[in-house]
Every structure is written in C-alpha cells, then in structure tokens.
Simulated assay, not measured.
Amino acid sequence: MSLIKVGVIGIGNMGRSHVRALSEGKIKGAILTAICDPFQNELESIIGQDNVKIFRDEDDFFNTSVFDAVLISTPHYDHPRLAMKAFAKGLHVLIEKPAGVYTKDVAEMNLAAKESGKVFGIMYNQRCNPIYQKLRELILSGELGEIKRTNWIITDWYRSQSYYDSSEWRATWQGEGGGVLLNQAPHQLDLWQWTTGLMPKKVHAFCSYGKYHDIEVEDDLTAYVEYENGATGVFITSTGEAPGTNRFEITGDRGKLVVENSKLTFHRLTQSEREFNATYTGGFGRPECWTIDIPIKGRHTEHQGIMQNWIDSITKGTPLLAPGEEGIKGLEISNAIYLSSWLKEPVELPIDAELFYEKLQEKIRNSTFQKRAVGKVNLDVSGTH
C-alpha cells in the first residue's frame, strides 16, 4: 500500500512536534512531503531533509499536489477556514484543538467535511489515555448507573505573567479568542462530555478576566451545568493557582468514579442507591461500598496515537477515535460558558451562535492585540498551550 503524503501547516511548538514524528517515520503508512508557515524562520533546519517542500504562502501550499492529507496546527481562528480550504482541494484533514473559536464557523467546517467525504480528525490526544478510555467504558456500559453529578477541578494549569508577556497575541480576544478555557482546557471540556456521554442543557458560568494576570481574557472560572436527566455538574479551571488540582469525579446511582493522580478509583455500591433508599428501614445507614483501584492496561500514545489512528482511518477504514466533527461539542460548552458570563445569566444549549459571534466581535474590537508590550521570552505562536 502506498504511503499517505502529509503536509503540515503551522510550524509552532506542536507543529514542529508533528513534523518530527512524521519525518522520523513514527507514523506508519505516512510520509511528510510539505510544510508551510509564513511566520517562521529557518524552516529548512526544522525538517532536516531534502524531499520535503517548504512553503511560505498558504495558497501555494494548497495549490500543490504533493500531499493527500493536511495537518493543521495554526492559531485557533484559522482552523475552520484552513480545513474548509483543504476539503475543497479533496484533502483529508487533521486539525489541532480547539476546533475553532466559535461554533458558527465550526458548523460550516463540519458540513464541508461531510460533503467532501474525506477523513476528518481532531487532535484530542487525551482520548488516547487508557485511564479516560476505561472511565468511558465503565460509564457507558452502565456500571456506574445513571449519572447524578459530575465535577472537574482542573487548576494545575499555572502560568506566570512572563508566559503571557512572551507574545503580543497571547491571552487576547483577537489573537487567541479566549484564555484558559480555549487554550489550556479544551481537552478536559472534550473528555467531560466524551467519557460521560452527556452534553449539558443549561450553563451558568462565572469567569474572572485578568484576575491573577495582566491580561484581557479569563484566567479563572467556575461553571455550573444541568443535564437532561436532572444531573448537575461543575467545571472549575484556572491558570492562577499553584500547585493546583486535577480531579474528575462522576457520581452515579451505583457509586462514584474518581480520576486523580493518574489513578482511576471506583467507589462501587453493592446495591443501587435508589433501591436502597426505597427499601432500607434502619434510619441511619448507607449502601455498602467497595473501593476498587481499577487496573489500567495499555499506554498513553498521545499525539502520535491520534495521528496514527487518522492515517489508519484513511488507509484501512479504521474508526476514528476523535472525529473532527465532535470538536464542536466541547467548543459549544466553552461558548456557552463565555456567553453566560458575558450576559450574567444562565444560557441554554444549543446556544444562540449568532449572539455569541456578535458578543465575541465586541470583545475583538476592544482587544489589546498588537498593543501589549512583548517580553523577552520568544515562544512560537502555532499550537502552543
């Protein structure tokens, strides 16, 4: 079987990592044939080989015929636009997270993907983590029973002021489209709904903008959600806490699942709580509970796992672990959190995409992008966290 020729556009921190994986032959069935980035110097030294074409102009890149598939690792706003450009050229697409900044153009991207018939993936590499795969299996198989509550505290994203000062685009509405919610936490927003199989129906969120840093976007937030089945949830994240916490807890009718410190623990009830509640006559008392450390098999293949799965889907028809169309789910949650914070009231899902876009444009018009002083640290733009 012939190798799938891959082009990479956006050669920042993550883009360089993807280029290395491809050029070093770590992705079976794929070969790197082109890279593109108008903002990076010394692209030749990044690839270290002569058979990879280098482009500075995106139109020249897409108009060439030297690749069958494209990996997009540019800044957030460009993901949908470039993906649609690739679909129009008959290319398979893998985009970095998030799918975009607002659901309006991500929905257009999803439609273009469907019409193209090409393989479309998103770099939700945390879906390769066997802990979250096992968590999803336990929940969707019914082992936990009906979900009552979800809580995720993910506050170990600590970032210093110098991190934000390293580039003028960083932590601005125009440059990134958001803060911790859009830059650091998209993986958790995805896993929140992917592992549980639940999307919120209502969100009431409280975001703090520049609470711990001199930035215009959010660096601390708490979101309360309600689900169709009556369950509730809380999502808390911040870049201003040290050492921070990463604890995901899901409570159901048959106990509680907790992911923390790279462990999955099942506090399993021997009897349904609802059944116990209806039949127990002893007053004080609770269902018997076993605490089980769930054994985790396999290894976390990270970004290479998603890339390999994408290539295998192209060449063998292997089901995608992270279909690109599913990127809109986590993004809709983040859009709902922002919109609730801006309106200072709960919002229903699906959100009013036009209203969100309108409010975002107001933020962009007042953005300090290109105005903030740039610090001495020089970090790459594309695909950074």
Results as ranks from 00 to 15, higher is better:
267 H>L: 06
129 N>T: 12
156 D>W: 03
270 T>L: 00
159 R>Q: 09
240 G>L: 08
204 H>S: 12
196 T>Q: 00
239 T>L: 00
269 L>G: 14
142 G>Q: 07
198 L>K: 12
173 W>P: 15
165 D>K: 10
259 V>A: 13
233 G>F: 05
191 L>G: 09
258 V>P: 01
132 Y>T: 11
219 D>M: 06
203 V>K: 14
162 S>G: 09
247 R>H: 10
175 G>E: 05
142 G>Y: 09
167 S>N: 14
249 E>F: 06
138 L>C: 06
193 Q>G: 09
230 G>A: 01
181 L>Q: 15
245 T>C: 07
225 V>F: 10
128 C>D: 07
136 R>A: 00
243 P>L: 10
132 Y>G: 07
175 G>T: 04
225 V>R: 12
135 L>V: 13
197 G>W: 00
154 I>T: 15
169 W>K: 12
156 D>Y: 07
174 Q>K: 14
153 I>D: 04
182 L>P: 05
170 R>T: 11
183 N>P: 08
230 G>E: 00
239 T>Y: 03
211 K>D: 09
224 Y>D: 10
164 Y>D: 05
168 E>I: 08
134 K>T: 09
256 K>E: 03
171 A>D: 03
247 R>F: 04
167 S>V: 15
145 G>K: 02
222 T>A: 12
144 L>N: 08
249 E>I: 08
151 N>E: 01
192 W>M: 09
161 Q>E: 04
238 S>H: 02
207 C>P: 15
240 G>M: 02
219 D>L: 09
